[in-house]
Design a binder for these strands. Structure first.
Lengths: 351, 351
DNA sequence: GACCTTGGAGAGAGCGCTCCCCGGATTACC
DNA sequence: GGTAATCCGGGGAGCGCTCTCTCCAAGGTC
């Protein structure tokens, strides 16, 4: 029943007005609102009634003008120029990847209890400036950055800006910023050893874009693990983490190497595409070809056969990012920290 | 070379300092920044140099304290309580649906040129309060609301709040808010007539959740169009717009009515699931069963066979939402308006 | 040459809030 | 009972910006 605000025409009440209503000073109302303990319980009660009666809401602009905090952080998903070649619009790609949902959920898990709002901003390259301006203006206290490509200048920009930020993966060039990551190489190794363990000998891999450190790590990890077992050469094709790219990469791979009987794909979405290609090629999974994905996203469960995949605890990772960021916002001097998580293999029907 | 801001320790320069540097008054600097034309070109130039030299960025809190504008709007994706039964986490669902990417892109198309930032906020039910608080605090000038279920109280809350807002579809209960929509019934009719035109006689439909006006409209439109052609009974099953739900709805439908040879599915994602089910059942598409989707999302192109579907111009619709919102923000008295778009059928391989 | 108009710059008053500092009241202690 | 310690509430000074109002100078008009 906050009846008195039909259309924003009349301004919402101010602290001053609440104070007047309650017959106390501005300071007292401010104390009540900010939960300072040195207020007489009776007065506190009175002020609370005044707040309810007037329908008072603190003016955030005024508050953050003096506190220099906004109690909100941004989740920025960045992408550099040179990746607009996939044909698929960037916005559709990021919003279609189950990745983002899990990251968001994990971050909110930590932020909400702290009363911190999360604001999501896509930042495909032409909009970098826009987003940077938003961040510089002090709209948020800090940034959780999902950036992929090594070529992406965004992390560097953010660093220059001095805005507290945490990255979702090891930055391509060393940067004094905290980040969270998973042991990519270990994940790839798990996939390699599993494929060998189930008796496959002709292994290949579909990697992510070769300008992403995580893609390179998965590729290198897979190769290294196989080298240990005597496999000197491992055919590979690169995709860009979309389903369609996985499909064409698989086609390419099998055209050149029809003997492949074990496939490691750098994410589930591409693996799903690869399954499609294999179906078209008349190959049975897992009988003819065993497939291992990466991420353990819902896509892994949605496809037939369900994917064996490398699980990475994205929600926990995002939660940790949020924690690192909050710590960083708290004390400005904190030095960059990294937190690395462990992957594990989930076996399903595709191997 | 904005050298003077290593770590937020020293405060960023203020208007005052820029004015001092340039040897002019605060007012003049403010005029330059806000593009007021009554400034001597020479002085303007001088001030610009001062801004560059000091690395000045306007303090948004201070500005919006006096202007009462933030130059940003929120895109809120809401979901009521009672839909958490699908098993799949809400955040994953919305971020996995190509829908959101297209909406975002369309809205940005209009907002960016105006210098307005877009902030995306998921608002699954337990977080409603959080998001409402954010909106009340005046963090944004207005809201683009994607809300689906008729049971969702969020639009009503928003309305009570007096925050300018535009809905993505006709609200379930009449509400004094602008909205954008597509002629759902006409879309369904297109599907029905197409299926009849290609000689199908046993038609059925997979609808969306029955608490969504758009789902009901599509269902009703499909039935009505068939009734005109003498089909009194049309089997149907409801899904929740996810791929998995489409798959199980199709299974259910064909178990009861194996004779079905034409299927209208209320969105592409569910249609994709239905294709999966049909494949499992050994039905060929389109030979045994013709399938028409709805949305014309990328999912329609990704699946095999590619989907015949009802195109709705989501990007344009979102752009129009943004336009309506900006108009509303401009003058507070504006009365609610609705803009309705026309669907059209895109024929591909599934019919 | 006196008057009026107009373009362009400065001064000042807030916007609504927090937070420091101070003062009055209450309690405690000698 | 006097003084110190403690507690709590009020007053006031800004935070950095915009915006109106005022003022000055230059140009135009009769």
């Amino acid at each position: 029943m906050t009846s008195s605000r039909p259309n924003g025409l009349q301004r919402s009440p101010t602290l001053e007005q609440v104070a007047e209503w309650a017959g106390v000073s501005r300071s007292t109302v401010s104390r009540v609102i900010n939960g300072v303990s040195t207020v007489d319980p009776e007065l506190r009660e009175l002020v609370q009634r005044a707040i309810d009666a007037t329908g008072y809401v603190p003016n955030l602009a005024a508050r953050s003008l003096v506190t220099r905090r906004t109690d909100s952080v941004a989740l920025v998903v960045s992408e550099p120029d040179d990746r607009n070649d996939s044909g698929e619009p960037f916005l559709n790609r990021i919003f279609t990847d189950p990745f983002l949902g899990r990251i968001t959920a994990g971050a909110l898990e930590v932020l909400r209890p702290e009363g911190i709002h999360l604001v999501i901003m896509p930042a495909e390259s032409p909009a970098h400036d826009h987003v940077l301006r938003y961040l510089r203006q002090g709209h948020v206290d800090g940034v959780l950055l999902i950036s992929s490509s090594a070529a992406d200048p965004f992390p560097q920009h953010l660093c220059d800006l001095g805005v507290p930020a945490v990255l979702s993966a090891r930055p391509a060039k060393p940067l004094p910023m905290s980040y969270v990551d998973v042991e990519q190489q270990v994940g790839a190794k798990l996939a390699a050893e599993h494929l060998l363990a189930i008796g496959r000998h002709h292994l290949a891999t579909i990697s992510g874009p070769l300008d992403m450190p995580s893609s390179l790590d998965r590729l290198a990890g897979f190769r290294a693990a196989l080298a240990v077992h005597g496999h000197a050469y491992v055919p590979s094709a690169a995709g860009n983490f979309t389903r369609a790219s996985g499909e064409s990469a698989a086609r390419e791979l099998f055209a050149a190497h029809p003997e492949i009987d074990g496939l490691f794909v750098a994410n589930d979405l591409m693996a799903e595409g690869a399954l499609q290609a294999l179906r078209d090629l008349g190959k049975r999974v897992p009988d003819d070809v065993a497939v291992v994905g990466f991420d353990d996203s819902i896509a892994a469960l949605q496809c037939r056969p369900q994917l064996t995949t490398i699980h990475q605890p994205l929600e926990e990772m995002a939660a940790e990012m949020a924690r690192l960021l909050l710590a960083r916002i708290g004390k400005h001097d904190a030095k960059p920290r990294s937190v690395i998580f462990h992957p594990r293999l989930i076996r399903r029907q595709s191997t």
